[in-house]
Amino acid sequence: MNGALHKSMAPAAALVLDEPVLTTSATAPSPVPSTAHRAAPLKAIDEYRILSAHEITAEKLVRADDPYLEGHYPDFTIYPGVFVIESVTQTVHALVEQTWESRIEIELTAIKSVRFTSPVLVGDTLRIRCLCTYVEDNRLTVKADCHIDRNELDPDLDDAGAGAASDRAARMTLEFRLVRADAHE
């Protein structure tokens, strides 16, 4: 049955998109609702800020009681690398919701490359910056840079002077397919 479901879903039917238009002028951080509209291991961003139709930033405070973390690992908690990818995915979703038609969903089709350079631990704030480029066939290429603000650093440090206060956690290039979300609703 799932095989039939899968076949009925691809390819996206005649989805033609114009260049994205920013439908919101909000530049203040927008909170992310706690109710998920699709399966996800956790709410992987707390808030986001749209900079342009192609660029977005987001933040995620890593908490010990985040879903799944109790098992990763029981004696020393690390935010899994795949969750950093999930954080980027949810950030891109927020941008697509605001800049494309509202009923467009994204589907991760490729991790072209990802490199994790520093562990993300409980109390760290993950800061994500995504640059999205629309390519042919309803695809979106995303270059993402993820940094962490360490939880034990001097709180007086200025965020803007991120060089001393922040480590790079990961860099990645992902590819998404844009699909209509309303086919079954």
């Binding site: 479901l5 998920a36 291991p41 990818i85 079954h184």
Partner: peptide, 24 residues
């Protein structure tokens, strides 16, 4: 847990297993 707290929906595609967990 990835299916906890989901909004009610009739769209079966929303129950796709997260690809992040597939990679994990």
């Amino acid at each position: 847990p990835c299916y906890a707290g989901m909004a009610e929906t009739t769209d079966p595609r929303r129950f796709a297993y997260p690809r992040s967990l597939m990679v994990e």
